[in-house]
Amino acid sequence: MAKIGVLGAGGFGIALSVMCNKMGHEVTLWSAFPAEITEIIRDGQNLRLLPKVKIPQEIKLTSNIEDLQGNDLIILAVPSFAVRETAHKLQPYMGEGSVLATVAKGLEDQSHKRLSEVIAEELPQCKIVVISGPSHAEEVATGVPTTVVAASSSRQAAEHVQDLLMNPTLRIYVNDDIKGVEYGGALKNVIALAAGICDGQKLGDNSKAALMTRGITEIARLGVALGANHETFGGLSGIGDLIVTCTSMHSRNRRAGIFIGQGNTARQALEKVGMTVEGYLATKAAYELSKSVDVEMPIVEQCYLVLYKNKSPKKAIADLMGRPKRHESETIWLQTK
C-alpha cells in the first residue's frame, strides 16, 4: 500500500482516487475550492462533474494543500490553465526526487509550453511523469478496462508510476518520448472539436474517418518538428486518444464541436458545455506553433478560423476539400514540395 495524493476533484481526479482506493492505497484528494470539498462530503460524490460515482469514505478530502506532503506519489489532475498555479502552491511540500504524475492534457496559454515543462519550472526538485491515453474518467472510475502510457525522461519514475497504479482494469505502458505523448494528448483535442463540428453538420462516417486520419497526420507532423518521435503518434497517446475523444459523447471537446456545427458560436458552445474544453485553447496554441516552425496544418488552421475568426464551418469544410492535389505520403510530398 502506498500514500497517494491527488490534486483536483474534477472527473479524472475523482476517478483516479476511487481506483487507487480500490487498490488499497491511502488516498488524499485535494481541491482548491473549499466549497467543492464541502459539497462532495455532503453528497458523497461530485454531482456536476462525475455523478453516480460514489467516493469512499476512506478517501481523505481536503482543501489544505499541506495535507499532500509526504506522499509516495502525487497526481496532478487539474485543467491545463491551472497547472502552473497549482504546482507553485505545491512547491514547499515536495521533497527532492519526489515523483509527480500529471494527467492534464494541453499546452500553456501564451507560452505554448508543454505542461511537464511548466511543472518543471515550478517544481525543479521533482521527477515528472505524464500519464496519457484513451481514458475517460467515467470509465476509469467504474473499472472499464483502460490502457494508457506513463512517459518521463526518467525511466525509473515512469516505472514507479506503473508499479503503483497498474491493476486488472488499468494497464500502463512506459514511454520515453515525453514530448510526443504530451503533444498527442494536447492536440487531439483540436481534432475532437473538429469531429464534433462534423457531427453537428451531419456529415457522416466518411467525413469523420478522413478527418481523424488526416488529423493524426497533422499532429505527428508538428510533433516531429518540435522534437517528438513519429512512432509515438501511432500509439495510445496519439491515435488511441484521438479515436476515443473524437467518437465519444463523454468528450467535452466533441460536444462543444457539435454545438458549433449546429450553428452556435464558439463562446456559446463553451457556455453550453459548461466545463473546461481544452481543445479551444489548444487550437490557438497549435495554430501559432505551426506558424512558428513552418509546418502545414490545414485542419488546425480551419479550426482556428472557425473558433477565433467566426468563419462558418461549412466554408471551412469546403476550403479543406478544395485544397490543391498532393501525394498522401508525407515523405514523397516533402521531397517534391
Rank of each mutant, 00 (worst) to 15 (best):
G196C: 06
K208W: 08
I4W: 00
G235S: 00
L281Y: 08
A220W: 01
N229T: 09
D294A: 12
I178V: 11
L187R: 02
V300F: 08
L193T: 14
C198Y: 15
L236P: 04
R214L: 00
K309Y: 03
N229V: 12
L211I: 03
D241Y: 04
V53T: 07
V224T: 13
M249D: 12
T142E: 10
A104K: 04
K202Y: 13
V6G: 06
K202P: 10
V244M: 12
E328F: 09
I59G: 10
S290R: 05
Y173K: 10
R155W: 08
A225S: 09
Y183H: 00
R84L: 03
L164D: 02
P145N: 12
S251A: 11
D109C: 08
S116T: 13
G223S: 09
I40F: 07
A210T: 15
L123P: 02
G235I: 04
I197D: 10
C198G: 11
A87E: 13
G240W: 13
H88R: 15
A256N: 02
A228N: 07
A266Y: 12
I239A: 06
C303M: 12
L187W: 02
R252A: 11
A195H: 11
T147Q: 12
I317Y: 11
I299N: 14
G106K: 07
T62N: 05
A269R: 06
V306P: 14
M23N: 05
A228Q: 01
P168G: 04
L242H: 00
S290E: 06
D294V: 08
E288F: 12
E66K: 14
H88W: 14
E117H: 10
Q302S: 02
M19D: 00
T147M: 05
Y173E: 06
I172Q: 12
A87Q: 12
R214Y: 04
D43T: 15
R155M: 14
C198L: 13
A194Q: 10
I128L: 02
I14F: 05
L222C: 07
A266K: 08
P298Q: 02
S329D: 03
L222A: 13
A228S: 15
P124R: 09
F259Y: 15
N264D: 14
N310H: 05
Q57L: 12
A210Q: 10
C303H: 09
G24S: 01
R267Y: 13
Q110C: 08
S31T: 11
T28N: 09
G322S: 07
G261N: 08
G8N: 02
Y280K: 04
G106A: 02
A285S: 12
V18C: 07
T62G: 01
G97W: 04
M297T: 09
E85G: 01
Q335P: 02
I299T: 15
K202V: 14
D43L: 10
L203H: 00
E330M: 06
G279H: 04
G11P: 06
A285V: 05
L29E: 05
L16E: 02
A87C: 09
T102V: 09
F33P: 11
D163T: 15
E117M: 03
L226Y: 09
K179E: 05
I216M: 06
A137F: 13
S329A: 11
I55A: 03
